[in-house]
């Protein structure tokens, strides 16, 4: 797909904007880094400016800012309960970061940093490591009873325990691939159909309409995947706190 001609996957290319080299490590500021900082700025503006008046009867903007807060707080309360409040700032940051990263990526020609497996995997790995350490810190050796399904006959343990361990270890993989694959597929599909619009000439109206519909769907998916990533993180925290 790469080359002189623009392919549907070229939108994912990392382009260095400012070359930064520290001790031989390439830490260049790229279009991905820019998208991340734009996301940080957007979330901060959305919440800080939206809440700046802090009115008793909120306007539309303040309502949206409060809604996002209450949405994540409700999510955390439902899945973890009151013990989960300690982790709220992290969960909220995670949700807003992924949500705005996904949504800002929907702006034509903008870069979607969540469409890169290394980014989603890094986030999933941090979640996985945090949850595992939390569970071990809380339950010590009893943590390993998590891999024994309650009520299973001892005869089945040699079969069930490896399955449970593999299932546990595959959490960061499924968590990261789900977000990455959704973003990748959606953006690729949009570009493929955008190519059809040009190629078909007058008949290009049909794929154009399809793109419009697909864009709506992709915005939904942008929200949905942020939600899924967040709720799974909450469920993992719940598992870590309560084991079974």
């Amino acid at each position: 797909m790469a080359g002189e001609k623009q392919g549907p996957l070229d939108q994912f290319t990392i382009k260095p904007l400012v070359q930064i080299d520290i001790g031989g490590a390439d830490l260049s500021f790229t279009n991905s880094s820019l998208a991340m900082l734009v996301t940080v700025a957007s979330v901060s503006l959305f919440l800080v400016v939206g809440m700046s008046r802090g009115r008793l009867v909120p306007g539309r903007w303040q309502s949206m800012a409060e809604l996002s807060y209450e949405f994540v707080a409700g999510l955390l309360k439902e899945t973890v309960g009151n013990e989960g409040r300690r982790y709220f700032p992290w969960i909220f940051t995670l949700f807003m970061f992924i949500l705005f990263g996904n949504l800002l990526g929907m702006i034509p020609s903008a870069f979607t940093f969540t469409s890169h497996i290394v980014v989603t995997f890094a986030m999933a790995l941090v979640v996985f490591a945090f949850v595992t350490l939390l569970a071990i810190a809380k339950h010590r050796l009893r943590f390993f009873s998590f891999f024994v399904p309650p009520g299973a006959p001892k005869l089945m343990w040699p079969l069930l325990i490896p399955i449970e361990v593999i299932s546990y270890l595959s959490r960061p993989v499924s968590l990261s691939v789900r977000l990455f694959a959704n973003m990748l597929a959606g953006h690729t599909l949009l570009k493929v159909f955008a190519g059809f619009v040009v190629a078909l000439g007058a008949a290009g109206v049909v794929p154009l309409l399809f793109i419009v519909a697909l864009t709506g769907l992709e915005i939904l998916i942008a929200f949905l995947q942020a939600y899924v990533f967040t709720i799974l993180t909450c469920l993992y925290i719940n598992d870590a706190l309560h084991l079974h």
Binding site: D26, L27, F29, S32, S33, F97, V119, A122
Partner: peptide
């Protein structure tokens, strides 16, 4: 490496 580092900074 650059992506992960900038991800950490941004987050």
């Amino acid at each position: 490496l650059s992506q992960v580092v900038w991800l950490a900074i941004a987050f």
